[in-house]
Design a protein around this nucleic acid. Structure first.
Length: 421
RNA sequence: GUGGUCAUAGCUCAAUAGGUAGAGCACCAGGUUGUGAUCCUGGCGGUUGGGGGUUCAAGUCCCCUUGGCCACCCCA
């Protein structure tokens, strides 16, 4: 026991210990189930990619690319730990050319070199789906509905869906110009921070929460005014689909997602249970030009990614999807040295039961404490008398009467007992 | 990257106006010799995140450093 550990996790990285890790596994299982129910297959991509795969995530080399873990490997290749998965999915599509529609889901860690705080880590896990090769607005609806269903499956109630459309690439370009003109006009008094943001990306000025920017943002032109007929129709169809599924949503013209590849539909899921600045659980949208930018054929794409950390924090706040220890079906207490426990746990495990046991030939009292702590419904007790008689004692840990049974009846006996709570 | 704030046993915290650290929980062991969760008793456990300074004396004051948290930035 040292006061000072020799090592600790690097900033923004952390260990996830049991039972919390089991909760992560269950969360992934829920997501996998939701995605599979809609015909999505899992895609596993490398955590490490050529730097160029992620080069288009930010305009002018700003944004995500500035936060990337990038380095030259021993072969001199410029590589990076993935800051997100969408670009990798598009790279995989361009590389393997699967038939469309290509519907995939994924889970795993991503890396961004940011200042850590609650709900924001340098290594953070996301789950998500992406679909390539379909232009239909009803696919946007399906994708959004999957995220909505996922949150529902976890038991989350206080989720808010916000949608917007950035229009076609030309619409977006014209809107950006109009925004720049608006904010640069002398009548709009912006904060100095927002003026800097304006130089990099006028869209992001809309994200400002600073009071002094409020008036200028309120007076800014709205993206809707710049939608081409096709973009407006697409956005209308998305909203119609959401209404048909009775999924609540708000249209937020000021919603702009951080990544620059988005076109047309974008959306974000926020939790009202999180009042911090990190209340966005995830989001996504269309990125119709991304595959082409990565060397593939022109291919429409849409998808989303959800942050596991923030989703779990939201679950904590709402008191749902709680962390539970996994409990064995039986805990074997052996006071004859431990060999019988080895044999009995082996038999139980082979029979498909979850069995744990005490070690170090500890006292019966100590082993019973372990049995109690394991939350197993039954303790199986073996002493010299039982060994001599070819029996074991099965003791219900809820206070019921213990009974002595023959060794060869143990599996059947334990199976007959309900093992839940 | 900027600013603020915090850091005491495994966990949650306490320690009067600077005088060489305590509690609860947890863990371990006993409570007439084969049985847990309750109760009683006892025990283990901290050079007070790390380093330096002021002082007769620092957990308590000052500086540096590491890390958490909050806000900004950005975003999941």
């Amino acid at each position: 026991m040292r006061a000072v550990p020799a090592f600790q996790t690097s900033p923004g990285m952390r260990d996830i210990l049991p039972p919390e890790s089991a909760r992560w596994r269950r969360l992934n299982a829920v997501f996998a189930s939701v995605a599979a129910s809609a015909g999505y297959g899992q895609l596993i991509t490398p955590l490490l990619e050529d730097l160029g795969v992620f080069a288009r995530l930010g305009e002018g080399g700003e944004g995500v690319s500035k936060e990337m873990y990038q380095f030259a490997d021993k072969g001199g290749r410029d590589v990076a730990l993935r800051p997100e998965v969408t670009a990798s999915v598009c790279r995989a599509f361009a590389e393997h050319r699967p038939t469309t529609p290509w519907k995939v889901w994924y889970t795993g860690p991503n890396f961004r070199y940011e200042k850590p705080q609650r709900g924001r880590f340098r290594q953070f896990d996301q789950v998500g789906v992406e679909v390539l090769g379909v232009d239909d607005a009803q696919l946007d609806v399906e994708v959004i509905a999957l995220a909505d269903e996922f949150f529902r499956a976890l038991g989350l109630q206080r989720i808010r869906l916000i949608v917007n459309s950035l229009g076609e690439p030309d619409d977006r370009a014209r809107y950006v110009n109009a925004l720049r003109d608006h904010f640069e006009s002398s009548s709009a008094g912006l904060s100095t921070t927002s003026r800097e943001t304006l130089q990099r990306n006028p869209l992001r000025v809309l994200d400002s929460k600073r009071a002094e920017d409020e008036a200028a943002i309120a007076a800014a032109p709205q993206i809707g005014e710049f939608h081409s007929p096709a973009a407006a129709e697409h956005f209308e169809a998305v909203q119609g689909g959401l209404r048909a599924l009775e999924i609540d949503f708000e249209v937020e013209p000021k919603l702009v997602r951080g990544l620059d590849y988005y076109r047309r539909t974008i959306f974000e899921f926020q939790s009202d249970a999180l009042d911090s600045a990190q209340n966005a659980l995830g989001g996504g949208g269309r990125y119709d030009g991304l595959v082409e930018a990565l060397g593939g054929p022109p291919t429409p794409g849409v998808g989303f990614a959800l942050g596991l950390d923030r989703t779990l924090i939201a679950c904590d706040e709402e008191g749902v999807f709680s962390s539970e220890s996994e409990r064995p079906d039986a805990f074997v207490v052996d006071v004859t040295g431990g060999l019988h426990a080895t044999v009995i746990t082996g038999e139980l495990r082979a029979a498909g039961l979850v069995a744990d046991r005490g070690f170090d030939n500890r006292s019966m009292k100590a082993q019973m404490k372990l049995a109690n702590r394991s939350a197993a419904p039954s303790a199986v007790i073996v002493g010299e008398d039982e060994v001599a008689a070819g029996t074991v004692i099965v003791k219900p840990m809820d206070g019921g009467e213990q009974i002595t049974i023959r060794r060869d009846e143990l599996v059947a006996h334990l199976r007959a007992r309900p093992t839940t709570t």
